[in-house]
């Protein structure tokens, strides 16, 4: 499975998004605001999701702001940080 598709499923499951299917999400759609409509509490849940599933600790807020902008950027962030401590 593509990492982007895996992340879409995880986001929907972990954030308990209702009436949203993985196929509804485009790789470059914004996750926050007018896109998927996630909010600041979801951002914290995304940090938890990355730690839990990929062992990636997110400490740099500026970096994460960019990484959390879309599924594509999130996948790039996971690829770039997986396995790092």
């Amino acid at each position: 499975m593509r990492l982007e598709d895996e992340l879409k499923s995880l986001i929907i499951t972990e954030l308990k998004l209702v009436d949203v299917k993985p196929e509804d999400l485009k790789d470059n759609d914004p996750l926050f605001g007018e896109g998927l409509g996630l909010d600041s509490l979801d951002a914290v849940e995304l940090v938890v999701l990355l730690q839990k599933h990929y062992r990636i600790e997110t400490k740099n807020l500026e970096q994460s702001r960019e990484a959390f902008s879309s599924v594509k950027s999130l996948a790039d962030y996971v690829r770039g940080n997986k396995g790092k401590k």
């Binding site: 308990k16 509490l41 914290v44 849940e45 938890v48 730690q51 839990k52 600790e57």
Partner: peptide, 14 residues
């Protein structure tokens, strides 16, 4: 369970 398995950094606010 999440605290035990993944530590307090993974404490879900929800």
């Amino acid at each position: 369970d999440s605290l035990i398995d993944f530590g307090d950094r993974c404490a879900s606010p929800t």
